[in-house]
Amino acid sequence: MSRLAVLSLFYVATFLQAGAYGLTFLLPRLFETFGANEKVVGAMLFITTIATLVSVYYAGHLSDRFGRMRMLGIACLSIAAALAGYGLAGGVGALLILASVAIGFGWGLTYALSPVALTRLVAEDERVRFFALLSVALMAGFGLSPVMAAMMERAGLTVNDAFFVTAALCALAAAIFFALAAPVRALSLATGAEPRSSLSLAAVGAIMRSPARLPVIMVCLGASVFAGMNNFQTVFADERGLDYADYFLAYTVTVVVFRVVLARFRGGANPYMTIAALQFVMFASVVLFLGSGSNAATYLAVAFLFGIGYGVSYPILAAMAANDADPDLVPQTLQFFALSYFIGIFGFPLIAGWMIVETGSTALLGLVAALAGVEASIAALRGLQRRRAAPVEA
């Protein structure tokens, strides 16, 4: 099998399983069918957070024992089971909790191991390009699954049916990952045995003493912003009389188009200044959303700007985490990067759900805007430091 064929199938499988995360944006809608509110959504996602962090921490241990591609396949099967569990749940109970644990286990492994697997197939100077394509596949799955769910609802089906369909797609992704195990090993650019990927407290300490600590911190902030805007977008849309499918479609198309167009872009001479500029656009989109009311055109503009700001900056930040890492700790750094991401993506909804119920959505969006501004400012400060140091390095 050629390298192009392997990479293409890898991205297809990534796209198929990524729809699972997109459906978590519909948990408020699903939970509403059995009388649960946003606090319960936040609580279930907090359980998912714990499962995700544990699985990310042990992802390297498991992949060292069973192989990265096989673990990706197992992870997709876990996600498929979780989605089926959500679809079958008729109330808050053991099935819902087990589904939350299973999706955290599966999504933590897929997110942590996918970029590590890619580093075996692409050279260092190709990372931004291929990480961008990976994020295109992820974001397309994220964004299109809520759109699919909305279309199914309009056709007379239920949100539960969307969970069952996506479970089947995740099972197909598992089959693809299992089939790619041997071709990926054969096409690996590295010689000899794969370096150990196990994450340890000593490795975490080394990462936090390296320049890679900044991308690790920033991705947690960005993930919190992403979760605050997207996980409760159905709530925001219902409050304003808008259609959440419009937001997700505009956001997804924007991210996919810009990431494809910029796939060969490596971040420019100073990637952190590029990240800062994009994240200030993200900050502006949240501020605009705060004051946009029920205007449909402005709603699409918010989705467009957020797609550019968050969507385009993320793969550059992921590549900087790999490039700023100690060469011997690249797999561990990417796993720790993923762990930090999941703290924000699944942990922040616990705060967000509480805020919506107790203080309202406006207060939540204010907090999200503040986090976006902090992350953009951190990137700008690192960019200025690199600019000042550049003459000395030359």
Rank of each mutant, 00 (worst) to 15 (best):
I79N: 11
A81K: 10
A81V: 15
L83F: 13
L83V: 08
Y86S: 00
Y86L: 14
G87K: 01
L88Q: 07
A89K: 09
A89Y: 08
A89M: 06
G90F: 12
V92N: 03
A94I: 10
A94N: 01
L96P: 15
I97P: 14
S100V: 12
V101G: 00
A102M: 12
G104I: 07
G104T: 05
G104D: 06
G106L: 07
W107F: 14
W107C: 07
Y111K: 11
A112W: 02
A112Y: 05
L113C: 09
L113W: 08
P115H: 12
L118N: 07
T119E: 13
R120Y: 15
L121C: 12
A123W: 11
E124A: 15
D125N: 14
D125I: 13
R127G: 01
F131N: 00
F131K: 00
F131C: 07
S135G: 02
V136I: 08
A137L: 12
L138P: 04
L138G: 08
F142H: 10
L144V: 14
S145M: 15
V147I: 03
V147R: 06
V147T: 08
V147P: 04
A150N: 12
M151R: 14
M152Q: 12
A155L: 04
A155W: 07
A155T: 12
T158H: 10
T158P: 06
T158Y: 08
V159S: 08
N160S: 04
N160A: 14
D161Y: 10
D161R: 14
D161Q: 13
F164S: 01
V165I: 09
T166C: 13
A168V: 11
C170G: 11
L172G: 01
A175C: 12
A175V: 05
I176C: 06
